[in-house]
Amino acid sequence: MKREQACRLAGYLLPAAVILLWEVCARAGFIDLDALPAPSAILAEAANPGALAELGGQTLVTLRRILTGFALGGAAGFLLGFACGCLPRLYAALETIIEFLRPMPSVALIPIGILFLGTGDALCEAIVAFACSWPVFISALRGAGAAGAPLVNTARTLGASRARITFRVILPAALPNVFTGLRVGLGVAVAVAVITEMAASGSGLGALILSASLSFRVALMYAAIAAAGLLGFTLNALFTLTEDRLLAWRHGASKEAR
């Protein structure tokens, strides 16, 4: 037990030790400060009011794009996936098209998007929506089968209508799957928002990271990278919290099934 605690403590100290080593090496001149400034210099840059305002502003721009795109893509992926899961004929008709579109790398669509949507919010939101709809689609498709024949047949025997079975039996049973897909989709949304802003946009964290790098404001660039990581972390943590609240029943249900 005692050694376990020592390992846990060492685990928390490891990142701190790496940062400390980085600081020492930077001050001693072992690393090229033009490529990697000291952590203290990055923190100082992030704390400077002008840079802080820029970081905060661009983070908000990116956050708004992520949330809009995620809402659109999540809703589309869920509706299409759940419909395909409930209606095998619809899925059979659409499967070939879907299997062609799904592996399409979302970045490849950016140049097409620029033609039709310009380089502003709409482009970013559309690409994010496209990219994050697929994990949700797949999980809703699989989730629609999660209720299983015994539950569905029981409901049918008890005289439930088709609509009632769909919304009261199949849908609740699909939710844990759907939420897993949504969580993956949210991670994808963050990454793709940054991607789109880098490839084609004047604003947002991705654009800030790239422009800071090209204008050799290296400390600002690292601060913006850290902000992107923090944004991803916060969104994931909030989502997990919501999921645990909304699906609290599922732990009880799975215990009973065992």
Partner: peptide
């Protein structure tokens, strides 16, 4: 136990964000 905090710290970083940093090196 040793690696979990470090992994959890790096994991939420969107990978494309490191492209400009990698360009510097």
């Amino acid at each position: 136990l040793l690696f979990t905090p470090a992994i959890e710290l790096l994991r939420p970083l969107p990978p494309p964000a490191i492209i400009p940093a990698a360009m510097l090196f």
